[in-house]
């Protein structure tokens, strides 16, 4: 006992310090994670997104006329629901990429309607590419097509959903412009405005399996 106590003087202190360190790290961890997650949560709000006028004056105003803003049931999809992944790792990656937006905010890349219009096709294509690559994951967070009831969907919806999913299509293949106006699209009517080509707007289906 004594020996243990004697030897334990240094050991005990070390152990105490170690324990203290563990506790300290633990507490710091909680604070860090808490603060980190709070920051993550805080930046995951519609109000945060539209705190930048680039986001508010163009895309937000258009979105206010769509079904995901107001509808009969009052269930909404907000900006991060469609644009920020829910899963942790995907979310972190998207947030890091989003620091690019702060940079372009400072540069003023899209700070006038004219600049926004000029860059819109590029921005939309970034989103289309992202959603196509992840099989429209954010849409599927809310809409699970395994539970689509084709008997009560509209004629056109039921028909195209069944044939579309068979061909390996994903939501964004058919539902572009669901929340905002689309950029110029090349439809061969009137003069050429350099819009998205048919291959971009209606890409061929890609089987995932």
């Amino acid at each position: 006992m004594r020996q243990y106590n004697n030897g334990g003087g240094l050991w005990g202190r070390l152990r105490g310090a170690g324990l203290g360190l563990v506790v300290l790290v633990f507490v710091a961890g909680i604070v860090f994670w808490g603060g980190f997650n709070t920051a993550m949560e805080w930046t995951n709000r519609e109000a945060f997104c539209i705190s930048c006028h680039e986001m508010e004056e163009n895309v937000f105003n258009e979105y206010r006329n769509t079904i995901h803003y107001t509808n009969r049931s009052g269930v909404r999809a907000t900006c991060p629901d469609c644009h920020v992944p829910k899963e942790w790792t995907h979310k972190i990656i998207r947030k890091i990429k989003a620091s690019n937006e702060v940079w372009h905010h400072l540069l003023g890349s899209i700070d006038t309607p004219e600049k926004f219009d000029a860059k819109r096709l590029q921005l939309a294509q970034n989103e289309w590419r992202r959603m196509k690559a992840n099989d429209s994951r954010e849409c599927r967070n809310c809409h699970n097509y395994a539970y689509f009831d084709y008997s009560i969907q509209g004629r056109r919806s039921g028909r195209l959903h069944q044939s579309g999913f068979d061909e390996g299509k994903t939501c964004i293949d058919c539902h572009k412009g669901i929340a905002h106006s689309v950029p110029a699209v090349d439809q061969e009517i009137g003069i050429d405005r350099g819009g998205a080509s048919p291959e971009v707007f209606h890409p061929p289906a890609q089987r995932q399996d």
Partner: peptide
């Protein structure tokens, strides 16, 4: 929500001669 703008004619996305076969 079917908007017709200078950028895009939603109706023609289904009713045009290039699209009607796919959309029915």
């Amino acid at each position: 929500g079917y908007n017709i703008t200078t950028n895009f004619n939603k109706c023609m996305d289904c009713h045009s001669w290039t699209r009607y076969r796919e959309t029915g």
